[in-house]
């Protein structure tokens, strides 16, 4: 099985691809926190975010259609999760479904804000992962001094995802080859056992992997890599983008100051 589609556009060469991964990770994190905390009904910051993303995507030469295709499903999922939001009381009633259930102006605004924030956030992360290989993101996390154990857990999850998916497929085939069928109670018993087996196998593998690490001199205390300094271009992006996003948030306040 091949999950290479995750890395399809990582090999392109563009200013966004060349940007230091630490800067990309930090900028995405700062943008996400600013967007997520934007109060509902404030559309200028979100519009600016969209412009910023489209601009970065065009610059990176990652096709916009690809970004949409990867981000929209997540927005759809959030739309489903937040489906009760429009019915929140508050403001003018827009549509009355029954005497007790109505779509309120405030609810609709909240719903639209939640969906667009989800879409923007996912699109930003998709753009990050399309312009930076996973290994480089991990390296950046380590260089940003995130706890090494945390970075390793993420790294192992990525590495063994493939192994576990393959093992699950093999087990499923072996099960189906023996005419798996019958009632749901039997189904759930068998599936429960499969999950248990997968867990045990992963647990045993973890022990073997740890032995392989120890055998090559692993010591949890060591931080072997030296960080390279950021270029002036990297620094400029690191400062300019978050300042721009923050500016779009503060626009009404800035205008009010005059």
């Amino acid at each position: 099985m091949n999950l290479d589609f995750l890395d399809r556009y990582v090999g392109l060469d563009s200013p966004v691809h060349r940007l230091d991964a630490r800067v990309k990770v930090l900028v995405v994190l700062m943008c996400l926190s600013l967007w997520v905390t934007t109060p509902p009904g404030r559309w200028i910051p979100l519009g600016f975010a969209l412009l910023l993303l489209v601009g970065a995507a065009v610059l990176s030469r990652v096709p916009l259609r690809y970004l949409l295709a990867r981000s929209l499903p997540a927005a759809g999922f959030v739309a489903l999760m937040a489906v009760l939001a429009p019915f929140r009381p508050g403001g003018e009633v827009l549509v009355r479904l029954t005497p007790a259930v109505a779509v309120s102006e405030e609810g609709a605004r909240l719903y639209a804000a939640v969906i667009s924030k989800a879409f923007l956030s996912v699109a930003a992360v998709v753009l990050l992962s399309s312009t930076t290989s996973f290994a480089t993101i991990l390296e950046a996390m380590e260089r940003l001094r995130l706890p090494r154990t945390l970075v390793m857990i993420v790294s192992f999850a990525y590495r063994y995802l493939f192994v576990i998916v393959e093992e699950t497929l093999r087990m499923k085939r072996a099960r189906d080859a023996r005419l798996f069928g019958g009632r749901w109670l039997w189904h759930s018993t068998v599936i429960g056992r499969m999950i248990g087996t997968l867990f045990l196998h992963s647990y045993e593998r973890a022990e073997r992997v740890y032995q392989a690490m120890i055998a090559r001199g692993y010591d949890p205390g060591i931080r072997p890599r030296q960080a390279q300094p950021l270029s002036s271009g990297d620094l400029a992006v690191l400062i300019a983008v978050p300042v721009g996003v923050l500016g779009s948030r503060l626009l009404p306040w800035l205008a009010g100051c005059r």
Partner: peptide, 12 residues
């Protein structure tokens, strides 16, 4: 190790 998937645990 016998199983290279135990020995190769990094992303690259």
């Amino acid at each position: 190790f016998q199983n290279p998937d135990d020995q190769l645990f990094c992303p690259t």
